[in-house]
Design a binder for these strands. Structure first.
Lengths: 192, 192
DNA sequence: CCCATGTGAGACATTGATGTCTCATTCAAG
DNA sequence: CTTGAATGAGACATCAATGTCTCACATGGG
């Protein structure tokens, strides 16, 4: 077990650190490396052995967020069945990553450079394609652009994660809240 | 003009500094006091004469945001006419402050203390009351809580400001985008 | 038992932002 | 012109976070 380098329980430790870092940074985005370490139950030295610095940590969180989003998009099978059902599946799959997403959403440091991670563009593209498919099939209205609907979805996910974390609404309402508002809006449907 | 203390053009200067600070910090929330000063066209010394420190600057921005929100809520006359029209007026009135709102939205430092500015609670309460009025009158669906609709409105305003600033959609579409998604959702209405 | 690896604790220098100071300059009122 | 106030430029100390280092411990495999 000498030359294994990274592997074995290293991976789960690293993942655990990322999870707790995400949870902490979502609440307090200015948390110190020391606080992040304490939150993960390790020392600052060990944290620094896993991630070269704060920058590397945030990048790793971004990579994790992208991976989870992409996995959710895959699992939701966006091109099968009615577009609105695909949206429901997507929100369901992405729900567990919403906290992490909310953190990354506020970390505009990630987007100010001209070289933003292409993973986001790919995810944006796939979700926008879903909305476009819904428009083409006549399910969705065409006066709201796919790009805006995609952005609004992420915004609502972040708002939802935030409002759940603040305790204002129950976690079990997360999916219904977001899907119903995004698809149906606040107005009552006409009783036909 | 010796003993006037603060007044006269001091006020407009202070306001101008706040505006440019908001515009800059919305794009780069980690901007230095020096960058903020440069963005406002003044020196760091002068900036520091207006605001004791970075903290005071952020607090002043929060106060400005609260004031503009409250003014928008007043101007929108939330308790007159159909609730959906009131929502449209509210978004219209609040549009010019959306950039500032988007910045404050990501500044979770403002909300982590137990003593969050009561201005927000008051605004939240007034907007939630509007949604509740719409539910009571039968305009709005009742399965989405007023608290969530309020939070979602702010989330969509932030997303809208962000997507406009990134150039993905035109500023003139801001109002339509947000109001239509919030009220009507992505689904096409049945042709009755 | 012995050793190697991972870890925690802590010391230390570095760095970048910040807050405070002084001083020369500008500008408008008198 | 004179004067006073506000400003810009810059020097300076401070401070908190960071990155790097060493050393002791303990744990598990040989």
């Amino acid at each position: 077990m000498s030359h294994m380098g990274y592997g074995c329980l290293m991976a789960v430790d690293r993942d655990h650190v990322l999870r707790s870092a995400a949870a902490l940074l979502t609440r307090k985005s200015t948390a110190t490396m020391d606080e992040v370490a304490k939150a993960a139950g390790i020392s600052r030295a060990t944290l620094h052995r896993h991630f070269a610095g704060r920058d590397a940590l945030v990048r790793a969180l971004e990579a994790l967020g992208i991976a989870e989003c992409e996995a959710a998009v895959d699992a939701a099978r966006l091109d099968e069945g009615p577009a609105s059902d695909a949206v429901r599946r997507l929100v369901r799959e992405i729900e567990s990553a919403a906290g992490l997403l909310a953190f990354l959403y506020t970390e505009n440091q990630l987007f100010e450079g001209e070289a933003q991670n292409e993973g986001w563009s790919r995810i944006d593209g796939r979700i926008a394609a879903l909305f476009r498919r819904g428009q083409d099939s006549g399910e969705f209205r065409i006066d709201l652009t796919p790009a805006w609907l995609t952005e609004a979805l992420f915004g609502l996910l972040a708002s939802g994660a935030w409002v759940v974390q603040s305790g204002k609404v129950a976690p079990k309402d997360f999916h219904h809240m977001i899907v119903e508002l995004l698809l149906g809006g606040a107005l009552r449907r006409e009783e036909s």
